[in-house]
C-alpha cells in the first residue's frame, strides 16, 4: 500500500518540526538509540508486521476451532447461521471496506503533511468504526432478546422453542395441503430462506424495527399468517430467523464460536477507534509530514488487518451454505 514511500533522512528536510533540532540535524522525532530516521521507520514497520503476525495467530486459533467444529458437525453451522442476518453482515463488510479506503487516504495525506485532510479522513474512518460497532450492537441485542447467548446461558429453548415448534407444525400442515408431493424435510429446510427473500424488500432491517413489544405487522403473503397468528407478545421473532429443521444438540456451541470470533474482532475495532483518536490528536498538533508519518502508517496497517479479518469472518459465519 504505502510501504514503498520511505521517509527521507531528516537531514535533508531540516526546517520541518519546530525548533527541537539539537544541532546534529536530527528530526525531533528520532529516538536517541536510532542512527537515522530511516532505521527508526523500518524498525517500527517490521515491529508492526510482527505484531500483526501475532494477531493473525490469535485469530488463527479461533478459526481453527471454527474449522474443527464445523468439520465435526456441519449441520450445526447450517442451522445456526440462519440466525445471523446477512444484510447486516454485508452492510458491515461494506462499512469496513470503505473505512480501509479512508484510512489509506489518511496515510497518504500524512505523507504529504496535509493536516486538515489527515484529520478529516481519520474522522471518517473513526465514524465507520463506530457505525460498525453500532450495527454489531443491534445484531447482538437481537440475539440476546431471542435467548441466543453463548454457552450455558443459551436460553433459546426458554424463549422460542415452543414458538418454533408450533410454527414448524403450522408450516408443515399448510404445505401438506398445497404441495403434497414435496418431501417434507426438504420443504422445511428451504422454507425460512424463501421467506426471508420474500420479506426482504418490504422489511426494514431488523432490530432497527419496532421495539420487541409491538406485534409484527409487516410482510404479507405466506408468512403473515404464520407470524401474526398467536404471536406471543415479547417475541419479535422474524420469520427469516426461523431455522431449518430441528435444533442440533449443541446449538449453543455455534453461538459460542460466533460471539468469540465477532467479540474478539469487535474489541479490535474498539482498539482501532481509540488509536484513531490518538492519531487525530497527534495530527492536530501538526506532527506528520513527509519526514515522519510512522504512527499513521502503522495505525493504517493495523486497521487493514482488522478489516481483513472481518472479510474472512463474514462468509465463514453468515454465508455458511
Amino acid at each position: 500500500m504505502s510501504g514503498d514511500v520511505q521517509p527521507q533522512d531528516s537531514n535533508q528536510q531540516a526546517g520541518h518540526g519546530d525548533g527541537h533540532e539539537d544541532g546534529h540535524g536530527h528530526s525531533p522525532y528520532q529516538a536517541h538509540h536510532f542512527d537515522t530516521m530511516r532505521q527508526q521507520f523500518e524498525a517500527g514497520k517490521l515491529g508492526m508486521w510482527l505484531f500483526l503476525a501475532t494477531e493473525v495467530l490469535l485469530f488463527g486459533g479461533l478459526f481453527c476451532f471454527y474449522t474443527i467444529y464445523k468439520a465435526n458437525d456441519p449441520e450445526l453451522f447450517k442451522w445456526g447461521h440462519h440466525f445471523l442476518d446477512k444484510r447486516w453482515g454485508a452492510t458491515n463488510t461494506m462499512v469496513l471496506l470503505f473505512s480501509s479506503l479512508t484510512m489509506a487516504l489518511a496515510v497518504r495525506e500524512a505523507q504529504l503533511g496535509r493536516k486538515n485532510r489527515i484529520i478529516f479522513f481519520l474522522v471518517v474512518t473513526f465514524l465507520c468504526g463506530a457505525g460498525f460497532m453500532g450495527i454489531k450492537y443491534v445484531e447482538y441485542s437481537k440475539k440476546f432478546e431471542e435467548g441466543l447467548f453463548p454457552g450455558k446461558y443459551f436460553a433459546y429453548e426458554n424463549v422460542v422453542d415452543a414458538e418454533e415448534a408450533r410454527m414448524h407444525e403450522q408450516e408443515q400442515q399448510k404445505l401438506a395441503h398445497t404441495e403434497l408431493d414435496l418431501p417434507q424435510a426438504k420443504v422445511v429446510t428451504e422454507l425460512p430462506k424463501a421467506q426471508g427473500l420474500v420479506l426482504q424488500p418490504a422489511t426494514p432491517p431488523m432490530g432497527l424495527a419496532a421495539p420487541p413489544k409491538e406485534p409484527d405487522d409487516h410482510g404479507g403473503g405466506a408468512s403473515s399468517s404464520v407470524t401474526d397468528a398467536g404471536h406471543a407478545p415479547g417475541l419479535a421473532l422474524d420469520p427469516s430467523h426461523l431455522p431449518p429443521g430441528p435444533r442440533p444438540a449443541n446449538a449453543h456451541v455455534f453461538f459460542s464460536i460466533y460471539f468469540c470470533l465477532t467479540g474478539l474482532h469487535g474489541i479490535h475495532v474498539l482498539i482501532g477507534m481509540g488509536m484513531m483518536v490518538w492519531l487525530m490528536v497527534l495530527a492536530s498538533q501538526g506532527r506528520f509530514g513527509p519526514g515522519y508519518f510512522t504512527p499513521v502508517d502503522l495505525g493504517g496497517l493495523y486497521w487493514h488487518l482488522v478489516d481483513l479479518i472481518w472479510i474472512y469472518l463474514f462468509p465463514l459465519l453468515y454465508l455458511v451454505e
Binding site: F65, P150, H252, V253
Partner: peptide
C-alpha cells in the same frame, strides 16, 4: 470463557 460461560469448546459436558 469455558469456566464463566460454559461455551462448550473444551468441556465435554457442554459439548
Amino acid at each position: 470463557l469455558e469456566r464463566t460461560l460454559g461455551i462448550g469448546i473444551f468441556d465435554p459436558r457442554n459439548g
